[in-house]
Amino acid sequence: MRLDLILRVGAKLILPFILMFALYVQFHGDYGPGGGFQAGVISAGMVILYAIIFGVRAAKHVAPPRIVEKMVPGGVLIFAGTGVVSMFLGYNFLDYTGFAHDFLHAHEWGILIVEIGVLVTVCGTMIAMFYAFVERGRT
């Protein structure tokens, strides 16, 4: 583990771009391929790559298990909460028409919020599973 200089430097160069790509996939999902699920997996992959190369302890500073565990149900709550909010605005469950002044913007906002919910759950689940596997191996 001490001699992998190229791996470490290479990973440090690549990691920010992986996160950048995940955010691009997330926020550009309306226009290009991708969406919350893909972005969540890619950003979880970034944390896992970091953990593989720099150690799980360093990765837990980046993505603390306490937060990761709350992300797993948090995304579902964001998603379902969006539906509840749209019901309070007088529309059907998950009908985003009430979120903004016109139809198009309201639905863009709705899709974005819901995709963030998907991202949070998927990313949290993947990282939490990885941590669970790694911790199991230590004992």
Binding site: D30, F93, V118
Partner: peptide, 26 residues
């Protein structure tokens, strides 16, 4: 609506399905 209809179908037309899928992941 946004040109990627896949996203529109997943998150808007069929938002309830996607909520179910997210729950499955959870």
């Amino acid at each position: 609506m946004p040109p990627n209809i896949v996203t529109a179908v997943l998150a808007d037309f069929r938002g309830f399905d996607t909520l179910g899928e997210t729950t499955v992941v959870f």
